[in-house]
Simulated scan of single mutants.
Amino acid sequence: MDADDEAVRIEARSEITDVVCSACGSVGTRVHSTYWRRLADRPLGGRRVVLSLHVRRFFCDNTACCRRTFVEQIDLLTRRHARRTQTVGRMLQAIGLAMGARAGARLAPRLGLRTTRAAILRQLRLLPDPPIGTIRVLGVDEFAFRKGRTYGTVLVDVETGRPVDLLPDRAADSLAAWLTEHPGVEIVCRDRNSAFSEATKRAAPNAIQVADRWHLLHSLARAVERTAHAHRPRLRKSISYHPLPPPAAGGLASQDLRYLPLTCTPTLQRDRHEMWATAVFKERHHRMGWPERGSRR
């Protein structure tokens, strides 16, 4: 054991007698080689802890096993290809679940842990998926792995707002298979994709299909826009333009703006801006006591 102001270094050796192959479960008896493995452990007194573990590599005598050699693992301490102990891994998972990867990577050095946001994300991917359970109201929508090329399907529990699963594509067969494996869906909230409708009718025929609010408003806005564009010549003719009266001597009156149309063409909008700018210019000159343009002293 060695310690300085920055880190504590500990050397240890495994004394396990029966080392089991993680692939086939057979016990290894012949040692292939040994090497030193460096692991980061949880900090001690504000200093980093580096664990140097002397481990053995064994031959796997099972001819049917896919591995020829394997390295001994210590329960509750090491894991294959890991550079930190399982305790540190659980700490990073807790930080990532509470704060996210970016904020967790900024907090970890304050706690004596060296990590990156990519490492926190890798630790989060090791966590098992939470149980889905029975979903009564299911939200179905598509998302893009790569926009314009590859799309998938996201499934959301509408009542809790929690994503429950991701499907690799947006085909009807994938959604139908998922609905068959998870019965109990009473309402399916989806967009206007025909594949989702077909899958729901096939796997959950008793479920009520409704359109979600966003797609309803989006479709309504597009319909109104197309209708207004088709009748644009009539809308232009129906606009009546009333010129502004001359501004009062005391300045621009706010009630004069009532003569301006609410909806106007680009030409009327430009005239409106010019009249407003002229009125403001005259009001500023009146307040400063400057003479009007073209007047003589």
Rank of each mutant, 00 (worst) to 15 (best):
G133A: 11
T87N: 14
D141S: 08
L179S: 01
A103N: 04
M99P: 00
R146C: 12
G96M: 03
E142P: 10
D165R: 03
L107Y: 11
T153P: 15
T85W: 12
R136K: 12
A94W: 04
T116M: 05
G161L: 12
G89D: 15
V158N: 03
A144I: 02
A118E: 15
A82S: 15
L126P: 07
G96I: 03
L113S: 00
V158Y: 02
G133F: 13
H81Q: 14
V137Y: 14
R106V: 10
I132E: 07
L111C: 07
G112K: 05
A176D: 11
F145D: 00
F145S: 04
P168R: 05
F143V: 05
W178S: 00
G152K: 05
S174Y: 01
L111M: 15
L97K: 09
L111F: 04
T134N: 00
D141G: 08
A105R: 12
A144W: 03
R84G: 04
D141E: 10
Q93G: 13
I135S: 04
P183Q: 10
G148C: 14
G100M: 10
Q123H: 11
T134G: 00
A176N: 09
Y151P: 10
E142F: 02
E181Y: 06
E142S: 09
D165F: 02
R149K: 14
R146G: 06
V164Q: 02
R106H: 11
H81N: 14
R136D: 13
H81C: 12
I120M: 10
L92V: 09
L155G: 03
M91N: 02
W178D: 00
A171Q: 15
G112H: 11
T115S: 12
P163E: 02
G100I: 06
Q123S: 01
T115V: 12
E186M: 14
I187G: 10
V88R: 14
A82C: 13
V156P: 10
G148S: 11
P168N: 01
F143S: 03
G184Y: 07
L113R: 07
H81A: 10
E181R: 15
Q123D: 06
R122S: 12
R80K: 08
T115K: 07
A103V: 09
V158A: 06
